[in-house]
Amino acid sequence: MQDLIVTLDGPAGSGKSTVARVLAQRLGLEFLDTGAMYRGITAMAIARGVDVHTETHLVNELVRHCEIGFDWATDPPRLHVRGQDLTGRLRDDDVTGGVSAVARLPAVREVMVREQQRIGREHPRLVTEGRDQGSVVFPGAAAKFFLEASPAVRAQRRADQMRAAGRRVDVERIREQITARDAADASRSVAPLICPEDAERIDTSEMQLDEVLDLLTARVRALPGGGPRATS
């Protein structure tokens, strides 16, 4: 079976995780949520009493000795850090507020990129989403997409997800967090958020989920190796 890596990059709240997960299902590929990995490290650091904004040396030490991976038997795969299932913590406010500080650390990104590339070798038919997948982690990917939307739209989508999970929502606070995350991701010195030159840029602000999925599905199925295991 021919290898097939599909990357979806874009800013926070652009719908990458949802699109990537469903796209993988449609195409019969596996799904990698790289943002969950950074959030998992953040959640673990917070649980250990580390201030991720000021005690960066402790975050660096934690990630160097941290076993992080996914349970691929579940859909979507659940995240485990040092044997703990932290999936339920990943969208909590304290994790959301700290993940940019963690993700900008060169030592953290070095470990995460290495682990993501390892996953790509072990799961070579993969849809992977994040902020540097097409630019840094998988520059030779067969298909690259960059999803974007306005901050207001992204905030509302994130709020809807949280309400569906039974959580309290402050849409304005979510919008502020998203705007701050955009600035942090675009300005960091290591692997900043960019649209790869060979990626297709897609503004999803006025698109429904199925429209985005239909477009990406057609693009990937047109590629060599993009169709044999595809499902409807």
Rank of each mutant, 00 (worst) to 15 (best):
R48K: 12
Q84T: 11
R91I: 06
T87D: 09
G35H: 10
P151Y: 11
Q133F: 10
A155I: 03
V6R: 04
R163V: 04
G97H: 12
A155F: 04
A24P: 03
T217W: 15
E176P: 01
H53I: 09
I202Y: 06
G97F: 12
L216G: 11
L58Q: 08
A191F: 12
R158Y: 10
A159D: 13
A152E: 12
G83T: 03
S135C: 05
A107H: 00
T7L: 08
G227A: 13
L147Q: 12
A107V: 06
L58N: 02
S150E: 13
I68E: 03
D85K: 13
I119N: 00
P224R: 12
N60H: 01
M37T: 11
W72Q: 13
T56H: 13
R173F: 03
A43D: 11
D92F: 01
A47C: 00
D51L: 09
Y38E: 07
I174N: 02
F31W: 04
G120Y: 05
T7S: 11
E197D: 13
R125M: 01
R221G: 08
R104Y: 10
Q116A: 06
A142F: 01
A180L: 05
R89C: 06
P77F: 15
A222Q: 09
T34I: 08
R89F: 06
D75N: 15
R104Q: 14
I174S: 03
R82L: 15
A43Y: 10
A47P: 00
P139M: 05
D51E: 12
D203R: 08
C66I: 05
N60S: 08
T54V: 12
R91V: 10
H80Q: 14
V6L: 07
I178M: 12
S189G: 09
P224D: 12
T217D: 15
K16Y: 13
F145L: 09
E176C: 00
T34P: 01
S205D: 09
P151A: 14
V81G: 07
E55Q: 15
P192F: 09
H65I: 01
D185G: 05
A143H: 02
C195P: 02
L27R: 06
L79S: 02
A12K: 07
L193N: 04
R221F: 00
A165Y: 00
R39C: 07
K144C: 07
T217R: 15
A43I: 03
V137W: 07
G130A: 12
P196M: 14
G97N: 15
L216W: 14
A101K: 03
P224E: 11
D185F: 11
Q133H: 02
L23H: 02
M44S: 15
D92M: 05
